[in-house]
Design a binder for these strands. Sequence first.
DNA 1: GCCTAATCGAGACGGTACGTCACGTCTTCAC
DNA 2: GTGAAGACGTGACGTACCGTCTCGATTAGGC
Lengths: 184, 184, 184, 184
Amino acid sequence: MRAHTGRRRNDAARRAILEAAAKLLACADPVTIDAIAAEAGVGRQTIYRWWPSKGAVLLEAMSELARQAAPRPDTGSLEGDLTAFLTATFRAAGTEPNTAVLRTAMAEALRDEHAAELLREFTAGRREELSAVLAPWVPAAELDLAVDQAFGVLWYRLLLGHAPVDRSTARSLAALLVRQLQSA
Amino acid sequence: MRAHTGRRRNDAARRAILEAAAKLLACADPVTIDAIAAEAGVGRQTIYRWWPSKGAVLLEAMSELARQAAPRPDTGSLEGDLTAFLTATFRAAGTEPNTAVLRTAMAEALRDEHAAELLREFTAGRREELSAVLAPWVPAAELDLAVDQAFGVLWYRLLLGHAPVDRSTARSLAALLVRQLQSA
Amino acid sequence: MRAHTGRRRNDAARRAILEAAAKLLACADPVTIDAIAAEAGVGRQTIYRWWPSKGAVLLEAMSELARQAAPRPDTGSLEGDLTAFLTATFRAAGTEPNTAVLRTAMAEALRDEHAAELLREFTAGRREELSAVLAPWVPAAELDLAVDQAFGVLWYRLLLGHAPVDRSTARSLAALLVRQLQSA
Amino acid sequence: MRAHTGRRRNDAARRAILEAAAKLLACADPVTIDAIAAEAGVGRQTIYRWWPSKGAVLLEAMSELARQAAPRPDTGSLEGDLTAFLTATFRAAGTEPNTAVLRTAMAEALRDEHAAELLREFTAGRREELSAVLAPWVPAAELDLAVDQAFGVLWYRLLLGHAPVDRSTARSLAALLVRQLQSA
DNA sequence: GCCTAATCGAGACGGTACGTCACGTCTTCAC
DNA sequence: GTGAAGACGTGACGTACCGTCTCGATTAGGC
C-alpha cells in the first residue's frame, strides 16, 4: 500500500473558496453553492470534497473573518475591561457587512447541522474570551449567565433588528452588568 | 357600489392552514407549502391567496400558538414578579415542541422579510409584557436594555443550544437582574 | 309544478361572451376562460351555465363568425362553380384573423370533446356546401373523397403553414379536381 | 482550450425519455412532463435541459416512431407506386396507436412553436417521400399540390374523424389522383 | 304587491401541470 | 488523486388555469 498517490490538495482553491464565501456572505442575500464555486473559479465538487455542506463553508469563512476581532483588554478594573471588550465586539458586530455575515451564518446554522456545530464552536470561543475578561472579578457561579447576557443582547438585537448594536449600547450594558456583578 | 361581491373567505380553511402549520412547525424538520396544504386539506393557491410567503404563515401560526402564554404576575415585589414571568417564559420556550417552533420561526424570519416583520411584532409584544412587569421598579432609561438582556439570554441559548433554557436559569437570571436594577 | 319561474337568460351576456370569444380567438394566443369572462364583463359561472366547456364557447363563436362565408355559385360549369367556391373559401380561410381562428378552433377540438363535436358539425356543414356544388357533375361514389381532397388541402396547409392558402392555390386545385372528376 | 469538459450527456436517459414519450403518446390522453419523467425514470430537469418544451419531446418521439414507415415503391407504374405508398401510409396512420400519436402531435404543435417546427420538419420529410414517388410521372408544377391533396385527406380525416383513414380510402384516392394527373 | 326562484357579476375553493432553482452526487478528461 | 466542468435525480417553489362553489344583488313570472 502506498501512503498517498496523486495530486495534492490545492490550497489556493481552498482559500479562493473561503474568500468567495466571505464575499457572498457579506451581500445579505442567500448564498448558493453555485455562486461560491463560480466566484472562486472552482468546481462544485471541490467544495463538497472538503466540506460536508454549504453551511460548513459559510461558517468556516465567517470564523476566519472574525478571528482577529477579540482584544484581551487589561485596564485594571472590571468596568474598564468589560467596556473595552463589549465596545469592540458590539462595534464590530453592528457594522456592515459583519451584521449580514452573522445573520446569514445563523440562518445557515438553523438549517444545517454542520453549520450549527461550527457556529457553536465559534460562539463558544467568543464566550471564552469574555469569560477570561470577567473571571478575575466575578464568582464562577455567575460567569456563564453574565456572559450569555452580554452575547444574548448582541444576537437578540442583531437578529431582530429592533434596536441598535452599537458602542453606546455596549457601554450601557457594561455598566449594568458591572452593577449586577459587583453588588453581590 | 357594493361593499363586497363574490364568495367570502372560508374561515375553516384559514384555521385549518394555521393549525396544519402549527403542527408541522412542531416537527422540527423543514416545513413545505405542499405539506401545509396537504395537512390542511387545502389547495396550495389558497395559502398564497392570503399569505405573502411560507414564512408569513408559519409566523402567524406561531403567534397564535404563543398568544396565551404570558402571565401578568403581581407578587408585590420586583424579584417576585420577575421570577414569575421569567420562570413561566423560560419553561414554555424551553419545552418541546415550543423550542422547535421558535427555532424554525427564526430560521424563516432570517430568509423571508414578511416572516421577519411578523417575528418582530411577536417579540415586540413579548417585550412589552416584560416591560410592564418591570416598569414600576425600574428607571425608564434602563428598561429596554434590561428586557433585551432577559430575552437575549432566552433566544441566545435557544438558538445555539449550548446551555439550557429552564426554570433554574430563569431564577438565576431574575436574581441577577434584580441586583443590577436595584443597585442603582 | 310551474313551468318556469325566476330571471330569464340574459341574451346580452350570451352575445357579449361570443363576441369576446371571437375577439380573443383572433389573437392567435391561447384563450382562457378568465380572459373571455373579463372581456365580456361577465362572471365565469355565466359561461359554464350555458356552455359545457371552454372549447364549446370558442367553437360556437367561430361557427357564428363563419356563418356568412359560403356562396352557392352557379356559373353553369363544374370548373366555374368549383373555382368560385374554392376561391372564396380559401381567401376567407387564408386571411387573418380567420387563419388564427381556425387554428385555435382545431387546437381546442383536439383537447375537448365538446369542441370536437362542434368542429365536426361545422366542417360537416362546409362539406355539404361543397357537395351541393359538385353533386350535379360528380358521381356520388366519388363525391366524399373529392370534397375531402379540397378541404384537406385547406386544413393541411392552414395547420402546418408550409404553403399558402390563397386564391391561386384555390384555382390550381379547382383545375386539378376538375380534370380528375371529368376524366372518368 | 479543451473541446469539452464535464460529464457527457447520458444517452440512455435520452432514449428512455423518448421511449417514455412515445409510450404515453400512444395512450390518447394528455401527456405531462412529470409522467414522461416518471416513466423514463429521469428527473424533470433532465428533460428541460435538452428539449425546449414538452411539445418538442413529443414531436421528436413521434418522428422516431414514424421513421421506418416509408416504403419507396417501384412497381413500374404511377398507379402502382402511388397505391402502394398511400396504402401503406394510410394503413399506418389509421391504426391505433398511431392515430392518437399523430393527433396529439398536432395538438401539441398548435400550442407550442418548438413542436410546430418539428412537425413541419416531419411532414416535410413525408412530402418529400411522396414527391419522389410521383416525380417521374408528374409535371413539377403540379407536384406540390398533388402531394398536399394526398396528405390533406389523411390529416383532415385523422383530425376530424368523420371518415375512415384506411386502405380502401387510400386506393380510391390513388385512383382519383392518377386520373387527375394523367389526364393532362 | 309580495313570493319564489333562476340569473347575474364577483371571487374564493381544491386541484393539476407548469417551468425554474438549488441541492448534493456522479462522470469525464486534463493535469 | 485532485481539479474544473457539467449532467444527473430530487424535490420545493410560485404561477396559471381549470371547473365548481358560494355570495348578495337583480329580475321576472305566479299568486
